[in-house]
């Protein structure tokens, strides 16, 4: 059976140590100034005095089931792996148009400054092949992140999802159906951007593609009409007509 990898996060135990971010950065040689994953935090309300608190929220690519990045990619370079549910980038097929980077409401992608192709969390593909957990999960001292296969009913994530209420951080106006679940509740919730496809992509789907179809369709119709007419007028009559013209 196909796997469906996901992450279940208990953000209440996150202590904002940033070990997940560091280990990810080391594992994937993420260039300076860029990150594949993150820890976000709520805005503290200091008027509460000694009860002031902050909530930390680990995150990363949500490996969505309704992936706007995949929809924005013109060449199929960004794709969802059917066998694992992980969204990958085929760097050799990518032309670096940046559509997917803009289309992700979670800002989970960045354009690699040297390779000039998008880079993102892939649940540490290489480590999974070796039977290891993703670096961020492995390194987390409070075990806030749990990783596993949702399709396996005996997995730790399936157990957590069964035993707990979970929330997902969804974008607007489309639900991207993320595969990252937060146990009971988490903060902040309102940070994803709108799902917005770049103008070049909108022009492609909304205008250029229909226009080309109409142009080719009309041209094809014209050719078909000419062919039919030629088919049903024999040589002689057309010769006659030519004479008539002259």
């Amino acid at each position: 059976m196909n796997k469906k990898y996901c992450m279940v996060i208990d953000s209440s135990v996150c202590i904002d140590c940033k070990a997940c971010m560091v280990s990810c950065k080391v594992q994937h040689k993420v260039p300076r100034g860029y990150w594949r994953n993150w820890i976000k935090h709520s805005t503290p309300d200091f008027s509460l005095g000694k009860h002031t608190s902050m909530h930390f929220q680990p995150g990363g690519c949500m490996q969505c089931d309704n992936p706007t990045c995949v929809y924005a990619c013109p060449s199929g370079a960004t794709y969802k792996d059917e066998e694992t549910g992980i969204i990958h980038v085929n760097e050799d097929l990518c032309i670096g148009c940046g559509n997917c980077v803009k289309a992700c409401p979670y800002h989970a992608r960045y354009r690699h400054p040297v390779k000039r192709v998008p880079d993102k969390c892939d649940f540490c593909r290489e480590r999974l092949h070796m039977g290891l957990l993703p670096a961020c999960v492995d390194t987390c001292p409070t075990k806030a992140r749990t990783f596993g296969d949702r399709n396996d009913p005996d997995s730790e994530v399936s157990r957590l999802l069964k035993e707990n209420e979970t929330v997902r951080i969804v974008s607007r106006p489309v639900d991207t159906e993320p595969n990252m679940f937060y146990i009971s509740s988490t903060m902040p919730m309102d940070w994803p951007g709108q799902v917005e496809y770049p103008a070049a992509h909108q022009a492609m789907t909304g205008f250029v593609n229909p226009l080309v179809k109409i142009a080719v369709g009309l041209s094809g119709l014209g050719v078909a009409a000419m062919f039919l007419k030629q088919l049903f007028t024999d040589d002689e009559t057309s010769q006659d007509k030519e004479k008539e013209e002259v």
């Binding site: 013109p74 670096g96 354009r111 000039r116 992509h201 022009a203």
Partner: peptide, 12 residues
């Protein structure tokens, strides 16, 4: 190319 926008339009 560091700016991807011309690439996106080129494709279209």
């Amino acid at each position: 190319l560091d700016n991807p926008t011309p690439v996106a339009w080129s494709r279209t």
